[in-house]
Design a protein around this nucleic acid. Structure first.
Length: 375
DNA sequence: AACTCGGGGAA
DNA sequence: TTCCCAGAGTT
């Protein structure tokens, strides 16, 4: 069966927008009928796509299950779910344990709990009818901007965007958007683009077409540009960047380093060390420190100080813990006091006893500057 | 804006 | 291993 015909009545009225709105920025949307034509042939047969009228409950369940989850993983769960909970009343009456059991293995289990609660709310407070307005939909537990748009457009034919990972990727390529698609700004930019090019005749089919297209043709790696019906409209391809877009910058896991710091005080002076002229925090002053935490860290600092002629006894208590985030690493500074300092500091330019009153006069390594505030 | 939340398939 | 998937809630 051809879903497109149900919602679109063929790809005719795709340009149903007002061409006289001069202050609205126009973008190229001539590819839209090509996408719809592609979808009319290549749309996937999915269990939640049957029927002449899309049941809002079925659309809702499928959209929740599909969050961060591949279609093939969802398919058996959806079938089983609909056998057990064929309508919202049945689901609302079910126990939380039974709902969770049906979800077992699919992951992100808060989706099941939220869906259960939201359906109970719809049954109790919405006369058993799923809202058609996105402003109402997003009030439901587990329904965000994407899911609200998907339900409103697919089940109710509302002209609303549903921007998911597929849509972000497809638009980043079509319009050669080189910024990070995971940023809020780019997501808004693409949402505006979708709103701008969305055909009035078949919003739901258009949204589904974008996702099917992203899943089958404009795939994340090595997009199938040969044979892509939109390749001649693709600005990324024109720029030769179809393989490197979209840009997805995730917060990379930056390593955390434990560093033990020992504050040595003598005659109202602090023992300080100047960092090497090259590298991190070059030439800035810091308290004596060494890598490691606990006894290991204290031992390392003690050994370091012995190498410059000082013998110290470090207090047992950690007097402060300072966290400092760099772009590429995190320092956890464990700060101790030296109870006693013996010996004479060897004459070295990068080791000094500095009056505590002069601490504002030297360049402090940032993390150690935080320690002076604690002291 | 960054974290957390599951699990599976693909490169 | 790493990436990515029809994201949303929390902090």
């Amino acid at each position: 069966m051809n879903m497109l015909l149900l919602y679109c009545g063929i790809f005719s009225a795709v340009r149903g927008k007002d061409k006289d709105m001069s202050d609205v920025k126009r973008v190229d949307d001539t590819w839209v009928p090509l996408l719809l034509q592609w979808f009319s042939v290549h749309c996937r047969e999915l269990p939640w796509r049957g029927g002449t009228r899309r049941d809002p409950y079925k659309v809702w369940v499928s959209e929740i299950m599909l969050q961060q989850t591949k279609v093939e993983a969802v398919r058996p769960y959806y079938e089983s779910w609909m056998e057990r909970f064929p309508d919202m009343e049945t689901l609302a009456a079910a126990s939380a344990d039974e709902v969770l059991r049906q979800w077992q293995g699919l992951g992100y289990y808060s989706r099941a709990r939220n869906l259960h609660q939201a359906v109970q709310e719809v049954v109790a407070s919405y006369d058993g009818k799923v809202p058609s307005d996105t402003a109402e939909l997003v009030k439901l537990k587990g329904v965000g901007a994407y899911t609200a748009g998907a339900i409103a457009s697919i089940a109710y034919g509302r002209r609303v965007a549903a921007v998911d990972g597929n849509v972000l990727r497809v638009f980043a390529r079509l319009y050669n958007i080189e910024e990070n698609i995971l940023s809020g700004a780019v997501k808004k930019e693409i949402t505006d683009l979708v709103d701008n090019v969305m055909p009035a005749a078949c919003p739901g089919a258009f949204n589904e077409a974008l996702m099917d297209f992203g899943a089958q043709v404009c795939v994340p790696r090595q997009p199938h540009c040969e044979g892509c019906p939109l390749s001649s409209h693709c600005l990324a391809r024109a720029a030769g960047k179809e393989a490197v877009l979209p840009l997805r910058l995730t917060k990379k896991n930056i390593p955390t380093e434990d560093i033990t710091v020992v504050v040595c005080t003598r005659q109202r002076k602090w023992l300080l060390h100047r960092r090497p002229e090259k590298g991190l925090l070059a030439s800035m002053w810091e308290f004596p420190n060494a890598g490691g935490a606990g006894a290991e860290g204290i031992g390392a600092v003690t050994k370091l100080l012995q190498s410059v002629g000082l013998s110290v006894v470090v207090g047992a208590a950690e007097i402060a813990a300072v966290k400092h985030v760099f772009s590429h690493k995190i320092w956890r500074l464990h700060v101790y006091r030296a109870k006693a300092v013996h010996g004479h500091l060897q004459a070295k330019e990068d080791w000094q006893w500095l009056p505590v009153t002069a601490y504002t006069e030297v360049p402090w390594a940032g993390p150690h500057g935080k320690i002076t505030a604690v002291l």
